[in-house]
Write a protein that binds this DNA or RNA. Structure first.
Length: 461
RNA sequence: GGCGCCAUAGCCAAGCGGUAAGGCAGAGGACUGCAAAUCCUUCAUCCCCGGUCCGAUUCCGGGUGGCGCCUCCA
């Protein structure tokens, strides 16, 4: 598989540190609120990466952190009159609800910053020993960016240029404007931990270095996140980790593009964002997942209600095709798989892999899926061997499984099924008025009946 | 000022040197009691100007128009 590495700005062949295993660290959410669909993109994209690598036979360790201590956490907890821990617990729970609905598999580990403070302190200690960090009199610790020769290598910005644009803060205790906090001395009313520099809490960047190396080792394969994390977050992680170990931190850096609204970046600070939770009230989040995968992950995509509608329609087509194949598997005739059909399945399977191998080109992979279902739609319109349908279903399930869609079945309420049966009786009696009235009733309840050669099918509208 | 991305049909989106995948929407047709689903047909020469090449949407240069990072942010 080839992936675009932000570090080299080229697509590179993925060669894992340990053959057969891929270790991935993805920056997770700060759990002070529900997450918005801009946050959802990396979750979905890198979940898909993980699923794909597993599909290709790799053992994948996927670590995604929860930032559960920082300024936003503290402010929000204060506003709500609860502790930072209570706030974190609440929104971690809410995170899982939305993530589950988006088809995001649970990470191998979801470490929390506050549960790894010891590791963080150890890492900071090492950095001070190695001359990469310094403590101030009042108990802050900063990273000395000038001490790390590679600073700026990920963002492609020389330190001087970065500093030229940096904001100089009032009351600066840092030696250089580009230095950043590793440890912040406790302020009254804030959660704190004991440390060699006094009571305080970790800075934002250090947690990811500490947790990624704790769970994945000094050098791991892929570090992923949104493009806006390239600078300063990931640049700082590199400085911290490589400064401490002297080894390469992550071999590949993957960054997803933004979700825009009206062509402008969606962000909490802009206020033009949509919460996943809000969207879920109106749409099945599976459609949101498909929408996210309909473009290559590095390109920016605009978000709009119309596009979710489009994705929903596409998803419908996929679901219908799957239903058709499942029926064919149930009602199929005896006989062996036509070799030509077996060949066709193989061809599509390979095309899908080729697309995904090319830097996770889900848009192209999706087109393979649609080409496949056109073939199966044609083929299973007439009775075919059960074994053919089973083979097709197996492939379809594999591919949709990689994309994380079509994983669940809609359940149809008993009374709707009864209405459908009643309608079928009416149809047999050629009582079209009665049949149509029942169909309208079913539609009003949010379901649809379709008459197929194998009898009426009821599905969610 | 530094670094970087993007521009393909009504909408979304692949392709990135050999004459434009796929989806949504639309139109016509087949099938259907009528529908729905499905199938068939139909729907673009790829922002502009130069250059390289036998050949460019695809490479190079220059425009124009969008966007991002350099400050918390996926």
């Amino acid at each position: 598989m080839r992936i675009y590495n932000t570090m080299t700005r080229k697509k590179e062949e993925l060669v894992p540190v340990t053959p057969g295993e891929v270790k991935i660290y993805a920056c997770g959410p700060t759990v002070y609120n529900f997450f918005h669909i801009g946050n959802a993109r990396p979750f979905i994209v890198f979940d898909t990466l993980r699923r794909y690598l597993e599909y290709r036979g790799y053992k994948v360790s996927f670590v995604q952190n929860f930032t559960d201590i920082d300024d936003k956490m503290i402010n929000r907890a204060n506003e709500e009159g609860i502790t930072v821990k209570e706030l974190a617990d609440r929104y971690i729970e809410e995170y899982y609800k939305d993530a589950d609905a988006l088809g995001i598999e649970r990470a191998t580990v979801n470490p929390r910053a506050t549960e790894n403070v010891q590791e963080i302190i150890e890492l900071i200690t090492t950095l001070i020993e190695k001359g990469h960090a310094y403590a101030t009199e009042d108990g802050d610790v900063y990273y000395d960016t000038h001490s790390f020769a590679g600073y700026g290598k990920l963002s492609g910005q020389p330190l001087d240029d970065l500093e030229a644009g940096a904001r100089i803060e009032v009351g600066e205790k840092k030696r250089s404007p580009s230095d950043f906090a590793l440890w912040k001395a406790a302020k009254p009313g804030e959660p704190f931990w004991d440390s060699p520099w006094g009571e305080g809490r970790p800075g934002w960047h250090i947690e990811c270095s500490a947790m990624s190396m704790k769970y994945l080792g000094k050098t791991f394969d892929i570090h992923a996140g949104g493009m806006d994390l390239i600078f300063p977050h990931h640049e700082n992680e590199i400085a911290q980790s490589e400064g401490a170990t002297g080894q390469t931190f992550a071999k590949y850096w993957m960054h997803n593009g933004y979700i825009n609204v009206d062509n402008k970046k969606m962000s909490k600070s802009e206020g033009n964002f949509f919460m996943v939770r809000e969207i879920s009230k109106e749409y099945d989040l599976e459609a949101v997942r498909l929408f996210m995968l309909s473009a290559q992950y590095r390109n920016p995509v605009n978000f709009s209600r119309e596009l979710i509608e489009q994705a929903k329609s596409s998803l419908e087509r996929l679901k219908n095709a799957k239903d058709r194949i499942e029926d064919a598997a149930k009602n199929g005739v005896d006989g062996e798989v036509d070799p030509e059909f077996a060949e066709l399945l193989k061809k599509h399977s390979q095309a899908f892999i080729d697309a995904m191998d090319d830097d996770l080109n889900t848009a192209d992979a999706l087109s393979v899926l649609f080409e496949l279902i056109r073939e199966t739609n044609i083929r299973f319109a007439d009775p075919r061997p059960k074994k053919e349908a089973e083979a097709a279903l197996k492939l379809l399930n594999e591919l949709t499984g990689v994309l994380g869609i079509l994983g669940k079945k809609d359940s149809i309420p008993q009374e709707i099924l009864e209405k459908a049966e009643e309608r079928q009786s009416a149809r047999k009696a050629k009582d079209w008025k009665r049949a149509d009235a029942l169909r309208d009733e079913i539609a009003a309840a949010g379901y649809a009946v379709e008459d197929t050669p194998n009898g009426p099918k009821v599905k969610k509208a």
